[in-house]
Design a protein around this nucleic acid. Structure first.
Lengths: 254, 254
DNA sequence: AATGACTGTTGCATATATTGCAACGACCCT
DNA sequence: AGGGTCGTTGCAATATATGCAACAGTCATT
């Protein structure tokens, strides 16, 4: 570990508390003023700190820009994929990853079942938005007005007798899903297929993706599939943790 | 300035582009792998960098937390926010708040056209500095030499046929904006989008922030948008009054 | 106005901390 | 097994950061 960098970076959380002048920074770092000055200058050149008109320092603009650029370049699929594979190895069923985009819900990754049964879903294809478990999770997280507007704009095709029939029923289902933090689709899309799904969340707690495990009745019953729920949720949480950059707490003392 | 810190900080924008492994970081820094490793470790201890499961590095959660804190500590934003919301309620369009920092202009708050608050999505992103109405206001207030230097350092991308093409034209526009005390962007960034903006001033009369109302042609014509100018200016003046402590922060005299 | 106290800034010699090297271990693929 | 890549560690050399002391600017006080 580098002492110089360590000191420089310690300035950032310090300034997060509020603006501070050179003397205060030097004192709280336990270094000479000239040292603090040079560290601050370096941070300044990188735009991480900003010098306001009263000469005090505060956190700088490039912090926003960096955070912004980072989230834009974050690829959920890339991070999630190994987790999906591992989940598939553990349970053997088809695993899906989906995101919400412009009123549609799309599968963006899929690990095929190891049982010899086919399920026609294609990566990049919109899902049955009114019944799919992943869709419920993604839409349940939308702000109230947007959710309602969308729900009323949708068609509610009766794929099966258990498909969700209309907007009010859909909105009720979304409420339930949002409260419990997971979702299912028990024969709502195809009679013989059940799904259980869990949400993947970003730093701010908003749902950025959803994943599901799907299996036909002939392989496992709905009840049996539901026993996988803890595993699915654990996997989703692991992906959330990694996606939002929470460190897995290896060692903390320096 | 500190070489070690300089190198360490150079890693951040590099990782903002996307995850990278140790070798890539070392190469792009132009240092030995062991050096890069030690720098990354220090960044990691401060949570600015996260190591994902494939051992590659990406930006960490603490960076997002810092950016969040930094944006919340901007007092202009805090004071302005309720005014922006009220303006949005009155006209229904998207309202932006922006500041100038180190040659960049960034949005620090935004009230969405249809949905109320809580959209942090584009906040923190640098604006198109040569065409945005808020950028014109902020740069027009700079002292002469600084303004000229900056104008000549900028690129002038032709987003549309009405984008400002070069430094002389930009400086002329800034003069005009400074004299009239407000600014517009009529299709200079995106063909179908118009903006009207007004400055927010501190005690000393200097422009500390700028706000704008934006709307697409399909909703209101440019002429119709311009009728909002008095309202926008009154809102900006109210914020100025409160920010500089003239108005007791409750009701503005009209 | 002059003085004094305060803060930020610079040049420099010293010693400390960082660097690159080379060797090691782990892992993957052929 | 063997060759390749990638991350990691101990060590010596030297480049680099540090603290000091002196300087300059600003503001309030007398």
């Amino acid at each position: 570990m580098s002492q110089t960098v360590d000191r420089a970076l310690s300035i950032l959380p310090l300034l997060a508390e509020g603006p501070a002048d050179l003397g205060q920074v030097a004192e709280r770092l336990g270094v000479h003023k000239s040292t603090a000055l040079r560290l601050l200058r370096t941070l300044h050149e990188h735009g991480l700190v900003y010098r306001q008109s009263d000469q005090r320092y505060r956190l700088g603009a490039r912090l926003f820009a960096l955070a912004q650029e980072a989230v834009e370049n974050l690829d959920v699929r890339e991070i999630a994929h190994p987790h999906l594979v591992r989940l598939n190895e553990q349970c053997g069923h088809t695993v899906h990853l989906a995101v919400h985009e412009e009123g549609e819900v799309l599968y963006i990754d899929k690990v095929e079942s190891r049982y010899p049964v086919r399920m026609y879903s294609r990566i990049g294809k919109p899902v049955a938005i009114t019944v799919a478990a992943v869709a419920k999770l993604l839409l349940a997280d939308l702000p109230e007005p947007e959710r309602r507007t969308l729900a009323e704009k949708l068609d509610y095709p009766m794929y099966t007798s258990r498909s969700i029939p209309n907007a009010p029923a859909f909105l009720r289902e979304l409420e339930k899903v949002r409260d419990q933090g997971w979702a299912t689709d028990l024969g709502g899309h195809e009679e013989s297929i059940n799904c259980v799904a869990a949400p993947i969340r970003g730093t701010d707690g908003r749902v950025v993706a959803a994943m599901s495990v799907s299996a036909p009745n002939v392989v496992v019953t709905a009840d049996e599939l539901l026993t996988l729920l803890p595993l699915v949720r654990r996997t989703a949480d692991a992906i959330s943790g990694e996606y939002s950059g929470r460190t897995p707490a290896k060692e903390s003392s320096s």
